[in-house]
Amino acid sequence: MSNWKNLTGPLSSNNPVIVQILGICSALAVTVKMEPALVMGLSVIVVTAFANLVMSLLRNGIPSRIRIIVQLVVIAALVILVDQFLKAFVYDVSKQLSVYVGLIITNCIIMGRVEAYALGNKPWDSFLDGVGNGLGYAAILLIVAFFRELFGSGTLFGYQVIPDSWYIANGGFYSNVGIMLFPPMALIIVGVIIWVHRSFNKDLQEK
């Protein structure tokens, strides 16, 4: 039962982005379109899960003075492995992500979860915690990307959803909202999500 909580907790009540406020920076960068957001979410799930697993297996032998360095090495190695495999087997996806794969290393969620959870818990629990937090992160990314792509480009996953005839250029009344494509809008959307989320989860509201 506690395992289940590790997996589902981060989806809502303990979401890494909107409750723990981790990983905001990359949430701004990769959410202009849904497709990179999805692949980024999947990659982060893999890396958080395995970083948590490896660090949890090593947790009793790590000298506490160099534990941050050890964490960095493990995370960086995992990210490079993911990058290499993407390049070899799904080259198209790896091109989609370009620089963002490398940026997974600096994603605060991964180190945050390793430091806060994996170093003090059993491997299987830690693995699930990693998967859960990755999922929570991916979910927020997709929500933000949904609004940004829909209103910014009029498409979803690259497919046009807003009819051509609506656009002013074709005699309609609608035009894409350019500011949606800029990073500040991602921050505003994340803010709105936090607002909505807290108004439903009263126990999270600061007194």
Partner: peptide, 30 residues
């Protein structure tokens, strides 16, 4: 601490080198 770091770095380096070499051909083709 010193032994731990050295062993860790060597293991990671070998792992990455092996992966890189074994995937190189496939990546080149791509």
């Amino acid at each position: 601490i010193i032994i731990y770091s050295v062993v860790m770095v060597v293991i990671v380096a070998v792992l990455l080198a092996v992966t890189s070499l074994s995937l190189q051909e496939r990546q080149g083709e791509n």
